[in-house]
Simulated assay, not measured.
Amino acid sequence: MIQQLKKEAIELLKKLIETQSFSSEEDQTALHIENWFKQHKVLYNRTQNNVWAVNTCFDASKPTLLLNSHHDTVKPNSAYTKDPFKAILEDGKLFGLGSNDAGGCLVSLIATFTYFYNHKDLKYNLVIVASAEEESSGPNGLNSMLAVIPKIDVAIVGEPTLMNLAVAEKGLVVFDTIVKGTPSHAAHPNDNNCIYNTIETLQWFKDFKFDKTSETLGDVKLTVTQIKAGKQHNAVPAAVELVVDVRVNDAYTNAEIVAVLQAKAPCDSMIPRSLRLNSSSIPLDHELVKAGISIGRTTYGSPTLSDQAMLSCPSLKLGPGDSTRSHSADEFIYLKEIEEGINIYIELLENVL
């Protein structure tokens, strides 16, 4: 059965690659996922572009384990040399947009859920959500499903980790920041030029370090990523706009990050866009982590954001593929990574369920 599921999972991934599914445009890939469940006689539900199901022997008295990955993609970048919407198999690599992030994870989790679907006497209930709008952190993705699906006690989020255990993940706060000055004609003296004032601010952001570090996630990482000022060559503008990207470790809440920066940063305003993308983690002594370590997987803290940020329960990020390939030109995943991923998912869950 497992070998057949592997073959069918790879065929599903090919269909997903060849079907455009930018965030909020996943209606056609949702149909492919529905067809899988129909073919395997899995009772499923669809909520907008999220497709989900629970195991046959669901028991409300038991804790529930969520299996989740997403079927939306970013838009392909201009450096692609291959057709991003064509599933191309070369030398054991399956090329195509979304193959690595996170199609390989998704089809591996779908195959795993299907394997356990009719199992009896499981310790955990299983819920799978093939979610939408992960790449855009949109309103109709996994976050919208938490009030729809059964209450979740723990989760495995499928993202490319080389099938190692990402036991913590950094959160994200993006700030819109303003440095003000005195607007003037460029020909006249002005010792309050906002662009020059920004030099001090940029140096402060470059040098600033948060006090608390994390054993798994290291330091909070603060990066100025955008700058905008001025509309004409002969006029000094009134303000410079900066965008600051802050990757938050599990030693801080997003609200604490905002409080620190608003109190200390040398700028005129620092407004967070959202506080909802918090860091996430799972205790190292959780049975999922112990089971993963027992079958030879290593643990680490992930700097990249995923739908884990939507969850308040303990969550583990785990999946086939390599995060460094995500959003890259000529994205690919090895077929052997998918096959190994299904094996490891099943072995891990057999040790827990």
Rank of each mutant, 00 (worst) to 15 (best):
M1Y: 15
L5K: 03
E11Q: 15
K14R: 15
K14I: 13
T19R: 10
S21G: 12
S21V: 03
S23D: 00
D27N: 15
T29V: 09
T29G: 08
L31P: 01
L31W: 11
H32G: 00
I33F: 02
I33Q: 03
E34D: 03
H40F: 09
H40I: 05
H40P: 05
V42G: 11
L43V: 12
Y44I: 02
R46Y: 00
R46E: 03
R46W: 00
Q48L: 12
N49Q: 09
V51M: 00
W52K: 01
N55C: 07
N55F: 02
F58P: 00
P63D: 11
L67I: 03
S69V: 05
D72I: 01
K75W: 14
N77V: 09
S78H: 13
A79N: 13
T81H: 13
K82H: 15
D83M: 10
D83S: 12
I88A: 13
D91L: 10
G96Q: 06
G98Q: 06
D101H: 01
A102D: 03
A102M: 12
S108A: 14
I110R: 04
I110L: 05
A111Q: 07
T114W: 02
Y115H: 15
Y124F: 11
N125V: 00
L126Y: 07
V129I: 00
S131A: 10
S131P: 06
E134C: 01
S136D: 11
N143D: 13
A147C: 11
K151I: 08
I152F: 03
I152Q: 05
D153M: 07
I156H: 04
L162I: 11
L165F: 04
V173E: 04
D176P: 00
V179W: 10
K180I: 01
T182A: 12
P183G: 08
S184H: 15
S184C: 14
H185M: 14
D191E: 13
Y196E: 04
Y196P: 01
N197M: 02
I199A: 12
E200V: 04
E200F: 07
L202W: 06
D207E: 13
D207P: 02
E215N: 14
L217G: 01
L217M: 07
G218L: 09
D219Y: 13
V220H: 04
T225V: 03
A229K: 04
H233K: 09
V236Q: 10
P237A: 05
A238V: 10
A238K: 14
A238D: 15
A239T: 15
V243H: 07
V244R: 06
V246T: 08
V248M: 09
A251C: 08
A251R: 02
N254M: 08
N254S: 08
E256H: 08
I257Y: 07
V258L: 07
Q262T: 15
A263M: 12
K264C: 06
K264S: 10
C267S: 06
S269G: 01
S269D: 09
R276D: 12
S280Q: 06
S281K: 15
G292W: 11
R297V: 03
R297G: 02
R297T: 09
T298G: 14
T298V: 09
T304P: 01
T304R: 13
P314G: 02
S315V: 06
L316V: 03
L318N: 03
L318R: 08
T324S: 14
R325D: 07
S326F: 11
E331M: 08
F332Q: 06
I338G: 02
E340Y: 14
N343F: 13
I344N: 02
I346Y: 04
E347L: 13
